[in-house]
């Protein structure tokens, strides 16, 4: 049986659960926030479901990459809805990380400037 004989779903059976570390990080962060009671499992599920639907309606491909992108979008959105953070703080912090990465010599740990 060649790979072509496999249905698209079955062909995905051997995919790793995470293609990149940030994907595991998103799911872990969501699980930790649920465990800490910052939002409920039901709220996380609803937010993730809504984001997956939005991506699908926007024509995003039905891939694991799209799934984790939706998970990240959902977690950012839910964190803001629960007033855990806001868009400005997220944007500023992301810029700070970019700055830190670009100014840290190769081979040294990347840390935010205090």
């Amino acid at each position: 049986m060649s790979a072509d004989d496999l249905s698209p779903l079955k062909a995905r059976d051997g995919e790793p659960a995470f293609a990149e570390p940030w994907q595991a990080q998103v799911i872990a962060l969501a699980a930790a926030l649920v465990a800490e009671g910052r939002f409920s499992a039901a709220q996380w599920s609803a937010a993730l479901g809504a984001e997956i639907r939005r991506a699908s309606q926007a024509g995003a491909p039905d891939t694991t990459a799209t799934y984790y992108q939706s998970a990240l979008d959902a977690l950012e959105r839910l964190a803001q809805e629960q007033a855990l953070t806001d868009a400005t703080a997220l944007a500023m912090r992301k810029a700070a990380w970019v700055e830190a990465y670009e100014h840290t010599p190769h081979g040294q740990p990347v840390e935010l400037k205090r």
Binding site: Q25, V26, L29, L33, L72, E76, L90, R93, K94, L112
Partner: peptide, 13 residues
């Protein structure tokens, strides 16, 4: 970009 966004969110929280 997504890796940076996760780092931003996680480090803030």
């Amino acid at each position: 970009d997504p890796a940076l966004r996760v780092k931003a969110l996680e480090s803030l929280l």
